[in-house]
Amino acid sequence: PRDVIKHPLQNSWTLWYFENDRAKNWEDNQVEIYNFDTVEDFWALVNHIKPASEIRVGTDYSLFKKGVRPMWEDPANKNGGRWLVSLEKKQRGPELNNCWLEVMLCLIGEAFDEFSDDVCGAVMNIRPKGDKIGIWTGDGTRTNSIMEIGQRIKSRLNIPAKVLIGYQLHRDLTVKNSSVIKNRHQV
């Protein structure tokens, strides 16, 4: 019967969890939690794990296409960058949970249409100074696609027009002493 068949996603995805255990090296602290490729399995996961606002400060959730590790060193990320959405501390609660869920729905639902192929994944950082959600794309030179993705992120997250979000290249982040990260694009 129709309802037994699960709804397939365009891509397979992996949810990762990062916790900074100083005894281990950074890459080993990224733990694969679960792979899924249907709507039903996505919800089974999300309904099962702690929501974003309840995981410890200093940890991350990341959702990436299967085979892409949630780090700029991965070949799929190396030449790309991220749209960065910064939240205030007081938003760590339902607002953060809704924002992260909406980003995940954009990813698994291919909300960027043909530009979805440029999307690698998204990272959610829980940090003392304020939480951040980054939506990662794989090629920092594809301006048209990057801007389209940025526009849709703003509308899906109901970010007011006057509030700008910036797109940063990963390689700009690796410049050690740079305090101010250059936004290559804004929308």
Partner: peptide, 18 residues
């Protein structure tokens, strides 16, 4: 090629279906 797209209302509707 074709792309499997789900809009948010459909996905949210699926959240609690058995």
């Amino acid at each position: 090629g074709t792309r499997i797209v789900y809009d948010r209302s459909f996905l949210l509707q699926m959240r609690n279906s058995p």
